[in-house]
Amino acid sequence: MARRSKEERKRQIMDEALRLFSKEGFFEVTIADIAKSLHMSVGNLYNYFSSKEALAKELILYISKLLGNEIRKINLQPISAKEKIKKIVQFYFYTAKERPELIEYFLRIYLSHREVFKEGCEGMICVSPFVTEIMIFFEEGVRSGELRDQDFFSAFGLFMGYLGGMVFLMGEGMLPNDIEYYIEDISQNIYLALKNG
């Protein structure tokens, strides 16, 4: 194996862990399984992550940054909130389809097993990069008059709950069509629910 920087190596471990968690389940997979799958020694892996909990936390932060960065790019575009909604939905579904392990980890592990994350990931800390961008999307939409002013969480729940629910249905194999088939309608629904007036 070619020499990799520590950061690259770390990322490789995280990608592999995500793949295994998604395939086998979070509680089934041990640190030894991940090491084995990467042909590294368990001891060496512990140089990167001191425990499975530490790895779990880094993963959620990693996913949150990745999603946050993409939404940030959308936020910075000079387009309407309506168009932004569509781009966020598009990106979210695309990610769910191409890299299902990312969204699954978020929905099935982070949100379902908060006890694993209770220290160091309190409240919004580990998802802050993602949530911050969603906040900015909402704030700017309301400021420009395009979206209706309301409590942040009632809007956040509507948007993210809806997308999460669709990805969940996809993961369960319950969607008759490809998830991208729904982008248009769902974007429209979200916009209609959030728009001003």
Binding site: G123, M124, I125, S128, P129, V131, T132, M135, I136, F138, E139, E140, G141, V142, R143, L147, D149, Q150, D151, F152, F153, A155
Partner: peptide, 23 residues
């Protein structure tokens, strides 16, 4: 606007403020 203060503390970018607030 959506529960987020319309005016930020002097000189503080919105992203920085919201990140810190979330934490």
């Amino acid at each position: 606007f959506m529960s987020i203060p319309a005016k930020m503390p002097l000189g503080v970018p919105k992203r920085a403020y919201l990140t810190l607030t979330g934490v």
